[in-house]
Structures are given as C-alpha cells and as structure tokens.
Design a protein around this nucleic acid. Structure first.
Lengths: 247, 247
DNA sequence: TAAATTTGTCTATTGATATAGACAACTATA
DNA sequence: TATAGTTGTCTATATCAATAGACAAATTTA
C-alpha cells in the first residue's frame, strides 16, 4: 500500500492519458522525482503502464501544458515543479504560519467582498439568525506564485463592519481581526471532503480539467467559544496536502 | 461557492458522462436530494448540463450500476443511497465512536496480517530503525454493509507480538492495544491528501473507476508521546467526509 | 564521426464517447 | 380511455481516445 499501484483502468470514463498524468503528478508530489530530474523515457513509461507510447505522450503533453514538465527533444523530459506543499491545519491554523519553511513567498489576495444575508449554513456556523447581514470575503492564497487555496469567509456584518477594507489593506485575516479586538482565535470545527474540480475551481486555482480539490468547511471561534468566522476553502490536491496538527 | 457549478469541461480527459455522474453523486451526498426522491427527468438534466440526453443516460446507467440510483420506466429515476458519512478525526479518533448516531451497524474486518521489515517511512513514524520487524494489519471498515475505509497499520513486532490474533478476535484496534497495556492513546499527526482511486482502491472499497479517495497517513502515540501505531487509510470521497474535531 | 538514445511528427485503423432523431414501452393523470 | 410525461431501445454520424508503425530531428555517448 506504500507505493502507488501502476495499473490503470480502461472504460472508466477517465481517459488513460489523464490517469497516467495523475500518476506522474502524484509521483512528483510525493517526491519520487526530484526537481529537474529526468522522467523515464516515453517507451519505458508506456511499458510500465501497459499502454502505447502515444498515450504516454498525451499525458506528458498535458503536464507540459500545465507547467509541471519540460520536454527536450533528444534529451528527455524533466520535472519543473516541486513537492506538494504541506498545509497545516489545527486549532491555531493561520495561512502563513508553518508554510515558512517550505516556501520563499506567500500571501493572500482579496478578490472580492460583499454584504449579503446569511444562508442557512452560514447562519448556523456563525450562530446568527438566517438572513442576518454578513460580510463575505473571497480570497486566494498563493505560495511561490502558485495558487494554493481559494476561500470564501463570512463574518457578522454588525460586529465586523469594515473588515473587508482591513483585509484589503493588511492582506491578513489575523491582522484584520486584531483591529476588532480579536487577539486570539481557535479553529472550532473542520469538515473535509474531496471532489473533482468544477469550472470555477479550474479558473480560480489555475488547474487543468480532471483535477481534484480538497474542500474544508470550518468555523473559527474566540477562546471563549464565540463564533467569528465561517469559511469554505478549496485546495488543489496535486499541489497541497493537509497536515492535521494536534493543539 | 455554496452550490456546485453546473458547468462541465470538454476535452478534459474525463468523459462527460463521468463528470455528470460525479455531479449527481455530490448532489446526493450533500443532501440536495432526499432518499427515495426523484431525480429531474433526463431531458431536464441534459438541458441543465448542456449535453445530449444519451450522455445523461450514460451517467445514470453508471450510478444505477453502482447501486446509487434506481430507474423505473415511465415513472422516473430515484435516489437509493443516503448522505455522506461524517467520519470524526481528532486526538482520540477511534473507528466506531462518533459513527453511532449515523449508522446502525459498523465494524472492522481484518483482511490480512504479516510481519515485515520496516520501510523508511514506517520506521520514521514509529521511531524504529529501518528494517526493524513490524507487524502489518490490513483492515477494512464497514458501515451498514458498505466499505467506508481501508487501512494498513504497522506496529513494533517486538512490543506487540500477537496483536494480529488479538485484532482477529476482538475486531477492534483499541481493544487489541488494551491487551498490551495501552489504556489510552492519542493521534499525534495526520497528513491528508486526495487522489483518483487506483485498481486496489476500486477492489477494496467497491468503487467505480474514476472515483476519488481521501488518504490519511497518521501516527498514534501513548499519552507520554511514545509512537505505537503508524497507519495509512483510504476513504471513498463519495461516501465519507472527515470531520476534524478539536481535542 | 558513427551509433545509440530520446523526443517530435506523420499516416492509418479501431473502439469509446457524444450527438441527433425516431419510436416503443410504461406510468400517472385528466 | 386518451393524453402527457417519462424511461428504454434502435439507427446513424461525427469526434475523441488509443493503438500501431515508420521515420525525422536533436542530443548524448562510444
């Protein structure tokens, strides 16, 4: 169970080249190939997966298109991108903490903000009445120039009026909350699932069709248990793994 | 970001019928359709997703094959399976705890066990020398007759000699560890990722090709921090979500 | 320089995927 | 009973996915 199985599935609704591209991505992400290392020759990969060389070429073409590989005629095919980023999740989850050792640059971009009535699940998460005014922040996390997360966060509009401006200015949820007197907050709950990327994910996270996204739905609370933030985040599974840390 | 996007991707390496099947699965899992509820007519779905009716029929045929839907000529297509199972993960993660409210029946089956030399990562996880003897237990978790997890667990063979027999007898990791004087243990770390199911996953978890699995790699320790169990678990994303609980 | 290795391009063929239209079979309802 | 609405089956066609083979182009190695 340690290594990945090399077999692939025919007549599955997922084309062989896409499956092989997934395998290669996974091998890179799990460190089987170092950065700049040469991939095995196309013929070797074809034999290994039991498919035609042209099928392997389709897989490689997709990854070249994605910027993961670089093919050079006569030399070989080389790995460009690095290992999967390990994203810490725990009681004190914050975006930049814990990513410092792995990346040279990371930040959050505020894409949009709006005030809206709370939907059923947002209201439940924040302990508000359904339809109460909430502020929604749409953000994207980037590390080394690559999108690594895409999130929507909701806050009580009465209590946190102006948090959108604070976020735009500071580029940090933690710093923005500090302006409202929140010096500390905890992750109360996180529900995790996975699915195929939809059109929005493809655009937001710069993914290729067929990619997988991890989805978390979380509630942050003050140390005394008062809900302050409800959020849904999406992570590209090929670039990110979630490391669940104890408190 | 709340509701799923209805658009699908062409030329993605994932066939349209598979993408639509995924969407329907997700809608069911997230509670958009109640159990026994009727799906919209094929023509309505075809229009909604911008594809031919026959393409929708392929998606439905796959889900009927999977046992998720039941089609009745002249009446409609109906939902058979229930919502996604919410699987708790936290410092005191155990299989049955927390699933009691959601399922009427659940248990762990021991599929195989063996003694082997520790691989690099198993040795690291357990704090042993590489190549030290470890016991591996292959297990499957089932709830209401459906596979919901598939795991490999490793234990120090010296300290836990005979845990395979204990597991076979008790059907519980917790109970088996208790025989070795472990009254309490904690989840030290969990690393989470997602990928497409490979051939082994399909067989082990009774999935259809193209399905997604959540993968966790975890270490359990005694209250004083001594590693006792290293495990890799796989969960079918269409049937399970992970609920990360605070300590 | 010559040979071996590797990626790039072309043609051809087969099977799976998707679209299109027509009509049959069955169910519920007016 | 007649009609509308739904799933089931059939034929036909076009495009994508995969296989097969041959050879060109570029690079490395002997």
């Amino acid at each position: 169970m340690i290594g990945q199985t090399d077999s692939i599935e025919r007549r599955s609704g997922v084309s062989l080249w896409r499956q092989i591209a997934d395998k290669i991505l996974q091998a890179i992400a799990s460190g089987d190939f170092a950065e700049n290392a040469a991939l095995p020759p196309e013929m070797a990969l074809a034999e290994r997966y039991g498919v035609n060389r042209h099928t392997v070429r389709s897989a490689i073409a997709a990854l070249v298109q994605e910027g993961v590989l670089r093919a050079e005629q006569g030399r070989g095919t080389f790995v460009l991108s690095r290992k999967r980023l390990s994203y810490p999740i725990g009681a004190r989850t914050r975006f930049s903490t814990g990513l410092q050792a792995q990346t040279s640059e990371r930040h959050i971009v505020l894409l949009a903000s709006s005030v809206e009535p709370a939907s059923q699940r947002v209201a439940e998460g924040l302990g508000l009445a359904r339809g109460a005014a909430v502020i929604r922040l749409e953000t994207r996390g980037e590390a080394d120039g690559r999108p690594v997360s895409r999130a929507a966060s909701w806050f009580d509009a009465n209590r946190f009026a102006g948090i959108d401006a604070a976020m735009a200015e500071t580029g940090s949820i933690t710093a923005s909350l500090a302006r409202f007197g929140i010096d500390d907050y905890l992750r109360q709950s996180t529900v995790l699932s996975a699915r195929h990327a939809d059109a929005a994910d493809l655009a937001d996270l710069d993914l290729q069709p067929g990619a997988i996204v991890l989805v978390t739905v979380a509630v942050n609370v003050t140390p005394d248990g008062q809900p302050i933030q409800f959020s849904e985040s999406r992570f590209p599974a090929e670039r990110v793994e979630l490391k669940l840390s104890a408190l």
